[in-house]
């Protein structure tokens, strides 16, 4: 094998190595912890894995593993309820994000060419300040007697006192994730061939029909990326519900956090993490498969 081929072999293996070290290995560790049992120890679970060649030690380790944490997950409806609540909030937030983000992306793609970089910069600008500071800013806006209620008061409207409620969480999430919805949709809309819109108009389609039959179907890949980029992290979101949500705002990310740090039940927290991962990854993998199968006729 010559040197160039060897180099290219190494280059193609690099991403796999990266995935192995930073994705697969931690997952194995988390899966292992989820099969352990909680203990008063440092770290707070057992059995511990030790690097040894003694088969008896391996046997003891294997005997120590079990599905107790998963049974606990099923037994306590807290987890079910927080999973469902996460699902509901993630779905609602993603739906709002689509309804808000698509028109923004469309307006940007239709703006004059020289304005587009400016609009793009405005969408990306919030990333230049810390995420936490921006969420704290929302506390100031939403808290009782905060900016929002003061503004409503000016018009003689009653205060909403939104802070620490599920609507506040939705507002915060939509605010924080909007760029992740807008950018992928904008990217596909911006690249579309303007002649296609003219062809639609030429063949008798008005604005609405053109949107329904041409713009929307062609932007589907961007829409799908936007939905993925938002739905998945929102499902596990912890910071926003913790800072803006009330004590009754259950979300899986928050439950996981309190198992881990509040109850120091690492095996249970890990089991929650594994179930959450499977719940997200399996449907997505299936969607991708079927999407590819449907799509390959066109490429």
């Amino acid at each position: 094998m010559n040197r160039a081929a060897a180099a290219s072999r190494v280059a193609t293996m690099l991403p796999w190595a990266w995935l192995l070290v930073f994705v697969a290995a931690p997952l194995v560790v988390v899966a292992k912890i989820s099969l352990s049992e909680s203990a008063v120890a440092q770290p707070p679970y057992r059995p511990r894995w030790s690097w040894t060649l003694d088969p008896a030690a391996w046997q003891a380790f294997a005997d120590g593993l079990g599905l107790d944490s998963y049974r606990a997950l099923l037994a306590d409806d807290l987890y079910w309820r927080s999973a469902l609540a996460s699902l509901a909030i993630a779905s609602a937030a993603t739906a709002i994000l689509v309804l808000v983000g698509y028109p923004v992306a469309l307006a940007m793609a239709r703006a004059p060419k020289r304005l587009r970089p400016v609009l793009l910069a405005i969408v990306i600008l919030p990333f230049w300040t810390s995420f936490l500071i921006r969420v704290y800013a929302w506390i100031a806006i939403l808290r009782p007697a905060g900016l929002l209620d003061a503004a409503l008061g000016l018009f003689g409207l009653p205060p909403l006192e939104l802070l620490n409620s599920t609507p506040a969480v939705l507002i915060g999430i939509v605010y924080a994730y909007l760029p992740f919805m807008v950018l992928p949709i904008y990217a596909v809309l911006e690249r579309r061939d303007p002649a296609l819109l003219e062809a639609a108009a030429d063949l008798g389609a008005g604005t609405v029909a053109t949107f329904r039959t041409v713009t929307l179907p062609l932007s589907r890949p961007g829409l799908a990326s936007g939905v993925l980029l938002c739905f998945v992290p929102i499902f596990g979101e912890f910071v926003i519900p913790d800072l803006l949500g009330g004590s009754d705002t259950l979300m899986l990310g928050r439950t996981l956090w309190s198992e881990f740090f509040g109850n120091r039940d690492w095996p249970l927290a890990s089991a929650v993490a594994i179930v959450m991962l499977l719940a997200l990854a399996l449907p997505l993998a299936w969607l991708r498969e079927s999407g590819l199968r449907r799509g390959d006729a066109r490429r």
């Binding site: 061939d193 296609l196 003219e198 063949l203 029909a209």
Partner: peptide, 26 residues
């Protein structure tokens, strides 16, 4: 009036029949 574009401007997400039928469906 209808125009045939220099780039053809066929709808990539529609079959040939759907492309041709587009104006009729509208």
């Amino acid at each position: 009036v209808n125009i045939m574009f220099q780039s053809y401007a066929l709808f990539p997400h529609m079959s040939a029949a759907k492309n041709v039928a587009y104006g009729l469906a509208r």
